[in-house]
Write a protein that binds this DNA or RNA. Sequence first.
DNA 1: CAAATAAGCCAAACCGTTTTAGCATTTAAA
DNA 2: TTTAAATGCTAAAACGGTTTGGCTTATTTG
Lengths: 339, 339
Amino acid sequence: MKKVTLNDISESLKISKSTISLVLNGRGDEKRVSKETQEKIFKFAKEHNYKANQLARGLSTGKSDMIGLVIPNISDNFYARIARRIEKKASRLGYNVVFSSTGESKIRETELIQSMLDRQVDGLIIASTQKNKDDILRLKKQNFPFVLIDRHYPDIETNYVCVNNNGGVVRAVEQLINSGRKRIGFVSLKPGLQAIEDRLQGYLETMNKHSFDVKDGFVQELDYDNIEKDMPDVIKSMVKFPASVEGIVFSTHFLAAAGLRELKKLNVRVPVDVAIVSFGQMSAFDLIDPPITSVIQPVDEIGDNAVDILLKNLENEDLDFEQMNLETDMIIRKSCGTF
Amino acid sequence: MKKVTLNDISESLKISKSTISLVLNGRGDEKRVSKETQEKIFKFAKEHNYKANQLARGLSTGKSDMIGLVIPNISDNFYARIARRIEKKASRLGYNVVFSSTGESKIRETELIQSMLDRQVDGLIIASTQKNKDDILRLKKQNFPFVLIDRHYPDIETNYVCVNNNGGVVRAVEQLINSGRKRIGFVSLKPGLQAIEDRLQGYLETMNKHSFDVKDGFVQELDYDNIEKDMPDVIKSMVKFPASVEGIVFSTHFLAAAGLRELKKLNVRVPVDVAIVSFGQMSAFDLIDPPITSVIQPVDEIGDNAVDILLKNLENEDLDFEQMNLETDMIIRKSCGTF
DNA sequence: CAAATAAGCCAAACCGTTTTAGCATTTAAA
DNA sequence: TTTAAATGCTAAAACGGTTTGGCTTATTTG
């Protein structure tokens, strides 16, 4: 059962390819093809289950109806949820999505972007490693439609949909302060991401605003690839003199999980001894002992807006850049010591 | 900065397209193209950053170097992890992956498969809704390369990579029995999935083997779309007379989470009053109160094997079907009452 | 009734590759 | 010296669509 092509239909029906193509694309009336001819074509197409070859169509039209999604890691629930949202919306609008995970590697990111371009995707949605200014600049110079999500390059003007990281962390720290903590630590990732940088700033600002010292050891930065390995020492150092914190803000959900794991191993009582707040959530955070207070990122809105902006840019060449910093929400649970 | 094509190179260099294509595909020596000519071509290609248009190439070769991944939901961590693995392996071998989530809808699945075929993907990896025999049969009849994961159709011979669901649940139930429970319940999804059916069988068999009654209300089946809504009643009915279970096996990770949530609301002590085991895991299961005993599915192996089998089938038309039922593992934690 | 208009369809170019068969020319073998 | 083989490259078809300009007829219009 070989695939039926326009040529096949053309030969069987003795009607030219052009007419058939027009009709099947719904331009039959516009092009004044008679009802009978259209009937015949539609009938034959249904019966033989004709489906256009999208590669051929793409080659011809210069549009592939695919959008590329480049993210750090599809198995991270945060990105997976964004991906789901993007996919859903995109598919309603006739687009498929190709995805790839960079694993936070700049080289991979470069390769992946290139490979998507080779595939002729119509546009890109990228949660960049932020080590990759070159590629972003190149895309921009080529006027290729793309929108950054979650992470943007502050010194490059592009479309982006991010969250107010600073503000989210401010709320997290304030929450701990409200529950009476003064010696508050901040566990984060090694710098390199603007989002992470912003979160740190949010922490520092808030501490400063309340005139709380940021003592040695209050700020800890882990390497993305060695979180499991390094977390024990980090937590140990934070819960004893001289650091001895009363509260910790974790700058990502997985840091919070790993950190809590260690706190429990050390029999530190949360939140009595150390209260914690997570920036970012996990689906079981409400079931954990204690339930984790967390800053919620508006995942759905990120996905929706990214697609909206991208599609607008596909239709219209020269739009102004759109830059969104979505506000976070916060769910207060026991871990922050408020109750 | 328009894209450079073979034609452009051909015109600039006054060398035929064919030669250039050959050379850039590494067949220069084989086709006895002189060193100098090859040099010239490579040099020009680098300088002008030539990248082949994959649509055109695909049209010409009949291969797109894309594989399609059809799953219920990318934001479910189980599938996301499989997706990550598939993507990683596939990309090493030169393939990109297009994914789509069916949301357990048969219609969506049909659409998605069709759309991937239109896109000329070279092969498919499908975690089917299992309501879709027609499509699978069609793919099979067309001899299109595909492998089913997580769920297969028992009465259709295909490639598949699944897990031993029955065996996994047997272990789960045995574990509860070991910890002294006799009145054991099973919370699952409405039938429709073979995997779910197998899990139920595993439960029934084990209960039977130990001559434990499966009382009214011991087996509860929820609708995928109404888990949050229906779980409260389900759990309520199980913890009081006449059902009043001492242990529950949840047939998926998200059921376990939702179920535990209700148990806690009702102030049922886990595992003292009711011990629980989850089939399938979540990353925070070790942090939950109590930590959840769970049957672990070999996610990485599922992904790896699926890609392996698929690629073998891409190379070789007529291979025997491969069918794998991978064994599960189990992590024992407090929730099952063993400690 | 001639000219203009509309109706209905098609030929052919094009998108950017791959691939096969074969053409000159030079070199080696008989 | 003639023939055979090797060298180095190319023309052209094919993949399966889209799209534009235009060619016939029939129908109006003046």
